[in-house]
Amino acid sequence: MSPSLSWIDPGELKETLSRIGISVDGPPAPPPSFRPEPSEDQPSPPPTPNTEASPPPPHFEPVISVAERIDRFARWLEQLTHGAPMSIADPEGLLIEGRGLPEPLALASVALDRALRPIRGLLGTHQVGSVTLEIDGGRLVQTIWVVTPIGRVALGIMVERPLEPGRVELVREGLRRVFDW
């Protein structure tokens, strides 16, 4: 289990910041007062295991961070689509990645997803392939959904012609791999 949500290694942070002239020895910023204080009825943290008696941790293959996965996927997609503007939104409609696709168009992918829920119910499937929306001047925004462990992720791409079904599946597989950790 990662020690923190940000996966920042304190040693690496200290070394990296020292190279740009920032000291890590200062006190941390005080948290704002709106943070909820832990209540007494919250469970206490689990006891620290006795590391002397525990077996050594298992060996894991080097893990590529999600940010790096997304970056690699975006670069791959850029080659596949010849630099088409794109965005990736999470199930809550928050942009995970945006490369050139104006935010209103990226958010349209999320609105489309919600609009398609009844259709998915009718068809009895979670997948509706992809949807292509013509906006103006012949520009098309193609939205491709993929079900991942974090929920349904929406990829929006601005294209001149819709991606062929084979490429859509390829893109979907690539996006699925990003979140398959």
Binding site: I8, P10, L13, I22, G26, P27, P28, A29, P31, P32
Partner: peptide, 26 residues
């Protein structure tokens, strides 16, 4: 500020990064 997961990320960065690095404004 009403979502625990969002606050948890903020709290993690407040704890991890030196205080002079994060703006107090959010």
């Amino acid at each position: 500020t009403k979502t625990q997961s969002s606050l948890a990320v903020a709290e993690d960065l407040w704890k991890t990064l030196p205080g002079n690095l994060l703006f107090e404004a959010t």
